[in-house]
């Protein structure tokens, strides 16, 4: 697995750059990851990111966009505004999780 350094944090990533070790992540790193993809995290962003982290810890997989909206109670429209274009992948990246693999 490749290792990369972001803002002084050394992290293990997959071939696309997504983090592979749940335990290597903390919130300051999340903010650095977000900055790398041009997103400044507001409280609303954090609400989504914290849901992803919590849900992954329980379910063992990254929640899909549908799950974030239905279970995490953040409307789909809002997710597209917060994380433009590719919300599911961007949220997963910032939360230090693998890309979601569900189709919906």
């Amino acid at each position: 697995m490749p290792v990369t350094t972001i803002d002084g944090h050394q992290i293990t990533v997959d071939t696309e750059g997504f983090m592979t070790d749940y335990a290597e992540w903390d919130e300051p790193l999340g903010a650095s990851l977000a900055a790398q993809i041009g997103i400044a995290l507001s409280d609303q962003h954090w609400e989504a990111i914290r849901f992803l982290r919590k849900d992954f810890a329980v379910k063992g997989e990254t929640p899909t966009l549908r799950r974030v909206s239905v279970v995490g109670a953040i409307p789909t429209k809002t997710l597209f505004q917060l994380f433009p274009q590719k919300p599911a992948k961007k949220m997963a990246y910032i939360a230090g999780l693998p890309k979601p693999h569900g189709c919906v």
């Binding site: 990369t4 350094t5 972001i6 803002d7 696309e16 750059g17 997504f18 993809i37 274009q85 961007k90």
Partner: peptide
Amino acid sequence: MTTTTTPQAAPFVPSFDDV
């Protein structure tokens, strides 16, 4: 910290093709 002062190459970040 800026990446220019570290010996590493630029951070490896997924490409989200925002263009």
